[in-house]
Design a protein around this nucleic acid. Structure first.
Length: 703
DNA sequence: ATTAGGG
DNA sequence: CCCTAAT
């Protein structure tokens, strides 16, 4: 049996979206992975920054936080809500049935935990910092779970993780009926879910009003007027809104948000153009975050899936997703979505925070969930840094904008959530090992210096030598009452952290290595890390990357370059020093690493002209002589390899055979397709002849 | 390095 | 487009 448990830690505050979960089995791993990694980076960025703070000041305060405690206050309400949910949520039961996690027949030994987040104790530097806001919708929903949704979890955990999606629940409950319907409940196919995600995000964000943090107000929040929701549409705001003054930004969103969003979904996300500079880049590097979605989806459906199968389902989902990547639209959409979730924000409290306490909060919240951008507010002109590294930005270049002054980035973090983590551990493992496993995952993000505590039914499980089973932590048991805490680790000295301002140094190295070792968390975690590489370089590169067919040559090269860079940065952590490039080659283990960094070539659809040239060449040379075809017709198109041409021909033949309605992409003139067919037929015949001919000769001879 | 095919 | 196997 495989159990999954999602652990929510505390709540308020700074939260980082969960890490996307990517199956190893998924094909196209490289690219996917890469993307994920990037996404994750985003999260890590933030974390790194926060971590720096936390660790450096940890004396000040990490105290164990007990989710249970947090949620208790709301128990009553929750119960009520839960009932409502039950009624409102259609999905609830479905998943249940599918799951089949009921019995222990399967008797698997693995318990899979998913840490959605950890909440640190309030950690605030800014006195005034009214609030922290959730980094993403997801988180939001998570919060909700923690707060309001606790009962749900408790009630259902026994068998499964619950069925309805958090988001869904949230949506159903909190959104105005209309929105809920449209975004969550009625989803059809793929697109809807995504959209739903967005909307939900928005809604969630809305909820994250300061009030949200007071449990008592939950109900009120639920009842929040549509107005709020609409404003939420912020969720739909174009992801890239760098450098756009918040103030100006908000209004826009309200009006044309939808538009932006849609565009956002477009392949090139032209929508991004509207906003900032880097935006374009980010958008163009669409594939950077497919995973995110996964994460989102996973989260969304997390509860929906039966425990047992949840795991499997997730995996499957992941796997299944691959196909989606092929679809441009899907891919982009997803990415975008992902990105959006990975939003992180920072409040620049610097001096005169024009916004009132509440105001600030709101602003932060309304920050569009997209792009993992961090919102940074400078005294009078709030600035949104680009997501890949809000933190990074501040540290590196972007900072410049605010740098002139002695702007300091001050974060007021009431709490933060660590991206969800997956932990898989045998039931007969010891509590100690469970702790370590979780710790490993967490420290990967926060750095060393923290330790993990395990709470079972609100009580600390101190005996590390007990097995989980002995401790009562086993599948179907009180997993719902299981909690983890983050505590300062007196014995462990915090790993030297890069200054908070320089988070990205921290994460790539720190985060990745450890995470990769964590079994289940792996895919997700692993990948996420590098992709987020918000490295300006990357962004820049992408931006500069010419789209024209000619320069295509550069892109691959550049990409590889970047990859290497990334690799090296990673290498920092590992044993092998970055400089030992040579050594790396020698060490077999490293190689894989390297290769994993390889990014899939960018897709460059053939233009009609190219097709024409290809057809012509093949007509003349025949199939099977791709090198010649390449030389003849694509000599100068460095980015078209003979393999590409061969593949293209293959697809052309296929295209020519299917009905026009089934064709996608830039339509190829029928005339060309006809030629393709005839040429294909002709050369196929020739080929056949060649093969058949010899025999006859022999036959004759023999006869 | 090419070619052929499956994914 | 990627990946492999076989040339």
């Amino acid at each position: 049996m495989v159990l999954q448990k999602r652990l929510d830690y505390g709540s308020s505050g700074y939260q980082v979206p969960a890490m996307p979960h990517v199956p190893r089995s998924a094909r196209g791993k490289r690219s996917v992975r890469k993307k994920v990694e990037n996404n994750q980076m985003c999260a890590f960025d933030l974390l790194a920054t926060v971590a720096g703070k936390l660790l450096s000041e940890r004396e000040s305060s990490l105290t164990p936080c007990d989710i249970t405690g947090t949620s208790n206050p709301t128990t009553e309400k929750d119960t009520v809500k839960q009932e409502q949910l039950d009624n409102e949520k259609p999905f609830k039961t479905e998943a249940f049935d599918q799951g089949g996690c009921d019995d222990g027949t399967l008797g698997s030994e693995i318990i899979l935990y998913r840490l959605d987040s950890y909440t640190s104790k309030e950690h605030s530097q800014t006195p005034n910092a009214a609030a922290s806001s959730p980094a993403s919708a997801f988180i939001k929903s998570d919060n909700k779970d923690v707060f309001a949704g606790e009962s749900i979890i408790r009630g259902e955990f026994g068998h499964s993780l619950g069925t309805s999606t958090t988001a869904q629940k949230c949506g159903a409950r909190r959104c105005s009926p209309g929105s809920v319907e449209s975004c969550v409940c009625e989803g059809d196919g793929i697109k809807t879910p995504l959209q739903a995600e967005r909307r939900i995000t928005g809604n969630l964000i809305a909820w994250s009003s300061p009030d949200m943090y007071s449990l008592e107000d939950l109900m009120d929040l639920d009842a929040k007027p549509p107005a709020l929701v609409s404003s939420d549409s912020s969720a739909e705001v174009p992801p890239c809104r760098d450098h756009v003054p918040y103030n100006s930004f908000v209004p826009k969103r309200r009006d044309g948000m939808k538009f932006s969003v849609d565009r956002d979904d477009d392949e090139n996300s032209s929508g991004c153009t509207n906003s900032g500079t880097i935006t374009t880049n980010a958008c163009k590097a669409p594939c950077i975050g497919d995973r995110r979605i996964k994460k989102l989806l996973a989260s969304k459906y997390w509860k929906a899936a039966p425990t047992m199968s949840t795991d499997g389902e997730l995996s499957n989902t992941d796997v299944e997703m691959k196909p989606f990547f092929r679809s441009r639209r899907m891919s982009c959409t997803r990415q975008r979505t992902q990105r959006s979730s990975f939003k992180r924000r920072k409040l620049f409290e610097r001096c005169s925070m024009s916004a009132s306490d509440g105001g600030i909060f709101r602003e932060g919240i309304s920050n569009p969930p997209g792009k993992g951008g961090i919102k940074v507010e400078a005294s009078d002109s709030p600035v949104t840094l680009h997501g890949a590294n809000g933190a990074l930005s501040s540290a590196t270049g972007q900072k410049s904008s605010c740098e002139s002054g002695d702007y300091q980035v001050k974060l007021s973090i009431k709490s933060f959530k660590v991206p969800e983590l997956f932990v898989e551990i045998p039931q007969n493992a010891t509590v100690g090992s469970l702790k370590r496993t979780v710790l490993e995952a967490v420290t990967a993000i926060l750095g060393r210096g923290l330790r993990v505590g395990v709470l079972l039914q609100g009580k600390k499980v101190r005996d590390d030598s007990k097995t989980l089973r002995q401790a009562g932590i086993s599948h179907g048991e009180e997993l719902d009452n299981l909690g983890f805490t983050l505590e300062p680790n007196p014995t462990q000295a915090p790993a030297p952290l890069t200054s908070p301002e320089d988070p990205h140094l921290l994460q790539p190295s720190d985060a990745i290595e450890p995470l990769s070792r964590i079994p289940p968390a792996n895919p997700t975690a692993d990948q996420g890390a590098s992709d987020a590489t918000p490295q300006p370089v990357l962004l820049t590169f992408i931006a500069n990357c010419p789209e024209s067919d000619h320069d295509s040559v550069h892109s691959p090269a550049d990409v590889s370059y970047l990859d290497k860079t990334t690799a090296n940065s990673r290498a920092l952590v590992p044993v092998v020093p970055p400089m030992d490039v040579e050594a790396l080659a020698v060490v077999p283990l490293r190689k894989p690493r390297h290769s994993e960094m390889v990014q899939r070539r960018i897709r460059r659809p053939f233009t009609v002209a190219e097709v024409e040239a290809l057809v012509q060449a093949v007509e003349k040379l025949g199939t099977g002589r791709w090198r010649d075809v390449k030389l003849r017709a694509f000599e100068n198109a460095k980015h078209r390899t003979y393999v590409d041409l061969k593949d293209k021909w293959k697809t052309l033949v296929h295209t020519a055979r299917i009905s026009p309605q089934q064709r996608r992409g830039e339509p190829v003139p029928q005339e060309l397709l006809d030629r393709v067919l005839s040429a294909h037929a002709y050369w196929s015949q020739q080929q056949a002849r060649l093969q058949v001919k010899p025999p006859p000769a022999e036959t004759c001879l023999l006869l």
